[in-house]
Structures are given as C-alpha cells and as structure tokens.
Design a protein around this nucleic acid. Sequence first.
RNA 1: GCCGAAGUGGCGGAAUUGGCAGACGCGCGGGAUUCAAAAUCCCGUCCUGGCAACAGGGUGAGGGUUCGAGUCCCUCCUUCGGCACCA
Length: 858
Amino acid sequence: MIIWCKWMCSKKGTYEFNEIEKKWQHFWADNKTFRSEDCDTSRPKYYVLDMFPYPSGQGLHVGHPEGYTASDIVARYKRMKGFNVLHPFGWDAFGLPAEQYAVKTGTSPEITTRKNIDNMRRQTKSLGFSYDWDREVSTTDPHYYKWTQWIFLKLFNSYFDETENKAKPIERLPVPDGLSEEERRKYIDDNRLAYEAEVAVNWCPELGTVLANEEVVGGVSERGGHPVIRKPMRQWMLRITKYAERLIDDLAQVDWPYSIKKLQTDWVGKSIGADVDFKLTDFDETIRVFTTRPDTLFGATYMVLAPEHPLVDKITAPDKIHAVAEYRDQAARKSDLDRTDLAKDKTGQPLGAFAVNPVNDEKIPIWISDYVLISYGTGAIMAVPAHDDRDFEFATKFNLPIIPVVEPDDPEQAKLVRQVEICFTGDGKAINSAQFDGLPTQQFKENITKWLAERDQGSKSVNYKLRDWLFSRQRYWGEPFPILHTQDGRVIGLTEDDLPLELPHIENYKPTGTGEPPLANAAGWLEVTLPDGTKARRETNTMPQWAGSCWYYLRYLDPLNDRRAWNPEKEKYWMPVDLYIGGAEHAVLHLLYARFWHKFLYDLGYVTTAEPFKKLINQGMILGEDGQKMSKSRGNVINPDKVIADYGADSMRLYEMFMGPLEAMKPWSMQGVEGVHRFLQKLWRAVIDEETGLLDPAVRDVQADEPTLRLLNQTVKKVGDDIETFGFNTAISAMMILTNHLSRLDVKPKSVIEKLVLILAPLAPHIAEELWQRLGHDDTLAYEPWPAYDEQLIKEKEIELAVQVNGKIKDRIVVSADADEQQIKAEALANEKVAAAIAGKEPRKVIVIKSRLVNIVV
RNA sequence: GCCGAAGUGGCGGAAUUGGCAGACGCGCGGGAUUCAAAAUCCCGUCCUGGCAACAGGGUGAGGGUUCGAGUCCCUCCUUCGGCACCA
C-alpha cells in the first residue's frame, strides 16, 4: 500500500490542468499580456468583438463560451499573425430580471447586478480568454450611461434632412416664417429624432410596462409570456424610420450571413407602389390609399379604412353610426392576441359612404375593418378582391363584387380567374381595364402611375413596415432620460454638464400599475428648480435595455475617457469592428438598433464608418445531452464550472469547438469532452515524461523525417486556413492526426513539437503556454510568429489514384506526383483488374483527373 | 400560409466545392499489459452475403443533367429558425 502510494506520488509530471490553467491565467493578468495599444500604426489592427452578456443570477451557461472561444481563437491567432488586436469584454447589465428580483426581495438591482457580474467575471476568466480587462465596461456604470444619455441628447437635439438623407443639429432646422413662439416650438419638437408621442402601445399589465413590437411574440410578452394589450400612452420614440433606406442599402457593405441580411431587409420591409386619391361622392374629402398594385385599379370594387381612421366619424351615414361605433369599440378592445391568432375570420362594417374610382368613375362603397392597419401606409386601402387574398376573403364573406383585371399566362389558371373561381396575386396581362387592356403588369404599373400623376390623382410612393422605435419603459433599472418637463408644458434636455443623471435610490421598485413608472416615487429626485425659479419635473420613464448595447463597441475604444464618449483618433484607428460573434437571436433587435445609432453618429461626424460591424458570425445553440433545449425544468443543464473543474478550461474550449460547425445547433456530450481531453493528455505525454516531469527523452533536436515534415506542413497550413474560415472542428481534427503520428515516433523532433504547440495555442492556450515553457522558452507564446509552412514540403511524392471503369472503382494505382496524363492513362489501362473489367472492349473515353482518379468509359 | 437554413454510420460530424463517401472524435467488438481493474497501447467497426479473396447496395424520397452527383436542376417529405392581415 505504501509502495503503491509512493509510486503514484512519484509521477510528478502528469497533466495537472487545474494548476497549469491557474498559473497562466495569473501570468497573463499580472503581465497584462493582452493589453491593446491604441493607435499603434506599426501593425495592422484587428477588432474582435463578442456580444456582451446580461449578468444573470444563473451565471454562465455552456452556450456563452462557444462564441467567446471562437472569437478568442481568432484574437490569439491574429496576434501571432502580427496584428494589433482589440478584444474587449463587458456587461449589458440593465434589464428586467434584476428589477423583478428587487420587487420580490427589496434588494437593490445595483447589488444584485454587482454580485452577478463578479460571479460571471470569475467564470469568464476561468476559461482563459485573452480579453483586455482594462477595457471592461458595464452599461449600468454612471461613467458609462453618462454617454448613453449623451447620445440620447444628440438624438433629441437633431433632425433629419430629407434632401441630404442625413441627420443634422436641430439648430440648423429650417423653421417656416410667421409662426408663433408656441407653434415654432411645436414644429421643432415634431422634427426631433427623439420625440414624444401619444401612441397605441403594447402594454403588459403583468410586467407593468410597455414593450416594443419586437418584444411581443404572438400577442404575449417575449419574456415571461404575459398577455399584452394595446393602449394609448405618452411615449418616447426614436425616428429609426428615417434610416429605413440606408439600413437596407448599406447591408451591401457588410460581410454578414445572407439569412441575417434577409431578415433585416424583410423587417424594414420596403414596398414600392403608388398613392392613389379617391374622391368621396357626398363630401368634399378624398381618401388616399397606398397600393403596390396600381395596375389593378380597375378591379377596385370597394375601399376599407382602418377602424381608427380619422375620416370615419365624419363620413359615416346616420343609419350606420351605431353599428360602426360598436365595431370600432370592439376593435379597440382587441388585444394583439385576438388580432393575430384568433382573427382568421374577416369582420367589418359598411360606412354607408361612397367613393369614386378615379380610373372609371365607378361608385364604390367604403367599409371599415381591422384587417386594415392604421399604422401602415395611409390606414386605408382600395380593395381588389380578384387579386388580393385578404380582399378576396372579405368580399366573399360580405358579397361584394369581384372583377378580374389581371390574366395569368397559364391558360388553365386564366380560365379560373375569368370565372372568378380563384384569387390570382401574380403578374400577368391586363383585362377589363379599358385602354390599358393587354399591358403586362410591370408596364401597366408604370403607365398608370404616370397617368394618375398627370391628373393629380396619385403618385409613386414607397412604404416601409419598419415603425419608429418605442424607446421608453416604465421601469426603474434602466438609464434615466436626461429630460425635464416644465410647468408650462415644455420639454427640455439637460446639458452635457448635467450628465450623468444618476438613478436615484428608491425603496419601492413596484410599478404603480397605472403606467406611472417607479421613478415617480423618487421624491427628492423628481422635482427640479430651474435657473428662473420655476419648477420642473424629471422624465420618469427609463430607456430600454437595447440603449446601452447600441454603442458599447465604441466605448471599448476609450473606456476611461471622462471628457468624451471616445477619442476620435482612437475611433479612426480601431473602427470598424472586424469580427462580431454572437447569437442569431439578435438578428433584428440589437443589430438593427446598433446600426441605426451608428449611422446617426456617422451623420454628426462622431464615427468615420457607415457600418459598425464588418463581419458577423452567429454561433448556434448548444442543446442538452438529450438533444432538447437546455433548461432547469428539463434537468439537462450543463454547468461550465463543473466541466472546467473535471476536465479543464482547455478541454472545455476544445470540445465546444470540436462539436461541429460554429453556426450549427448541436447537442452536448460529456463523452465528447472526454475525447478531446484524451487528445490533450496524449499530446502532454508525447512531450513530457510523466515520471520525472521533465521533457521526454524522446524529444530531441533532430531533423524530422520526410513523412513527419510533410504532415507537419500540411497541418500548419490546414489549421491556419481553418481558423481563417472558422472551421475549428476540422482544425482540431488535423492536430489530432499530427499528435497521433508523433506519439508513435520513437524520436520526436523538437522543432515539430514546437510548431504543433504554437498552432494549438489559440485553441488551448494554457497547455500550449506550459509546454512552450517546458520546451525551454522564457516568454509567453502569445506574440510568437505564427509558424510558416512550405508548399513544396506539403506535396506528396507519390499519389494513389482510383481507377474506375464506367464510374465504378475497380482498383487503385500509385503513380509519381509529377506523372503526366499519358503516363497515368497507360498505367491505368495496364492494370489487371481494369483489363478484366473492360473485358476486351475498346475504351471510348479515358478521363484523367490528376491527383484524383481515372475513369475509363467503354 | 410565406421566407430562410438543414437532412450523411449506433452518435457528434468530415469530404480540396462535380472526382476514392464516412476524415477526426465518441460508442462498440477483439487483443496486449495487469494477480485483477482503471489508465494506456494495438487491431477492427456504413449495410447485406461470404471463413476469406470478393460481390452487391448505400448520403431523407422520387426523377433529371453528367464519363462521374452527398455536392448542380425539378417535384415531394421531415426538422429547425424567422415572419405572419404591412395592401
């Protein structure tokens, strides 16, 4: 027993990953190994950014390190390639969970947040990422949100110049002459990029706050799944719609996955069409509609207004007033849930009023229905039931006339369209359209738009699905608006000197339930005395969580600057972000908002690039071992702390990269972790004598043999190429192959081992540093040049080719690498098995693909 | 319903982008080492038939283009993600 123990203890050279990892993490921190040098023009720069996390009480889950490891590999690789790398980290720390916890327990969100950040920072550091921790930021830090408020003030103090298609300071807004002071103020306020409006919002009674459209999923809140109703309220809005065109166009400048670009394009939702004016028969009024199909005007048999349309009150016939009022009432009470999930059936009411179709002077009835939205286009449509599914359904239900005006090319379909059997929404040729008959759809659209314009009854028009950004929340734990409401009803912004406007400490975090935010309870904070002695009240809404994450990548450039949000020199040096890695769940929300702010800052000259993120990669979700989404209730959550304790950070990092393609969704496997851990063990034993802890005697300063040298050069090339293309799983597999080869050699050339250690370093940095040191190097390998490979050494001397007869493999031949086609052909035809397969027939064709195969066709 | 991505061994996944399908890892089977086990090392492992050499089949299904298709084209099925009265 004692002897056995002695024997165990004498093995002092085993792979002690826990000790090694701690040692190097301290080394990196103490030496500030990964500090980035601002404005170092002697090296090319590279900015690698992770989507910063919300510091939740659950801590890190295994999904976080996936993206972080990928970006860290690129950061470390680029350093070795001679780049000046900026790789920062921080916390998106405002948010609902800390506030809900505060409501429940009375613990200040500040305390909860600090605790959670400390824990998650510890976890993040335990993975050995090469962040420049001196640049750490938190959105909840007043030194940070001072500048979030500053950007908001810039928005508040800017307007959008339509002719130049860019934002400008509000002082330069041309204000019409002859306005009263009151009117002048209103005009200016109406042009600000941050403005107040009374809007029908998504009110969530359970959460006591409004939500952005994007935060409502299927009629319930995205977080928590609580019911959401529509309610008119005073809210802060940002004019993101002014940037709709640029948000679509500039996607051409960035290297993002096609699917994300598509998602954003669809979200902005550009439609080109025409506005058309319909005169009413009994009133001196016109109804303007937006349509993408002006070519179907002759088929417009009725009109529909949104229930909220302002003209409804005025034009409803006396005998319809009661029914219409009731309908509008019902529509107003409908929640989003009712409108989406349950409203499959069309409803509506006729107003008893009529309009005139401008193309044929037909008198057509006007209805209201909630299938027309007040918030899109003009809130009114012309209905062409023959060529629009929704109008078709409505007309069928209420027995309204259906006139086909577009004939499809397919004769079968054309017949059905003419007989009003089906609704056809595609392109075709015009029918029942007077002098326009026979025109193809596209042509007709142009002609009729011109025709309408000449008669002053319409014009070309573009609409977007994108709405202005609802920017206020009735919460405590968010950035306070730097805004004052005066007694005489003016809204004024604080000056830059007044920033930051800090969140006051309060006792009661509960929303009041009426929509009055918690900050309304902060007595000493709420009231302000202005220089002229009058009183003003602070804005009690706070900003949404997206605010802080809209610009954090800029603050990393200059995180300690107290005089400016960032130094322009540093911005010019570091921007744009070269690589941005994060989850696909932010495809429309965060990425669209951040691009909007960036473009705004670009217009004002604070940043020098039109787009913030050059290349974007989305990491896929990691599922539980059962292939299900990880969740506490399923009990399939993998705790990273435990994985690191059992196998080490290097194994954790390596496994997450080895699982499969970065973008793919893939299930966790503990046995898979063990697999990559065995690989590291094997490498360790190939270099270190486990008995002595010294370099293995087999590792010697000798020239590598040809196969080893070839494999080494192939591996160096492959790992480099794979890192450049984010194929980390195949890079690891290549290093496994080289390690397997080396472990079988009796004498291991030191130079080969060293290069393997260097190319492993970005992926498994701790073991690499340790081996590098034990191989006799004093300094960190973080800035060692990436090994070069020799193209000549990669080439095989002899190549095995498959020989096919009629596409079926019959045998394999080995030829010299420089054999020409004739030689290969002769060799192939001389082969016994090939001869047997040909059976004396004359080859019709012989296809030789060098270094691949030979195919003989008979 | 519309849009997007993807379907390859028992499992995670490779395949120079039209050229030997299944690299690498897991799991499994056999062997070496050991008193025994763990660890490690070696051999095998797509399916079917055969002791074997070998033969045949095989990348969700069906069709097509090609000397040659996991890869390109058409139709369909399944899974995942997004949008969902946006005129």
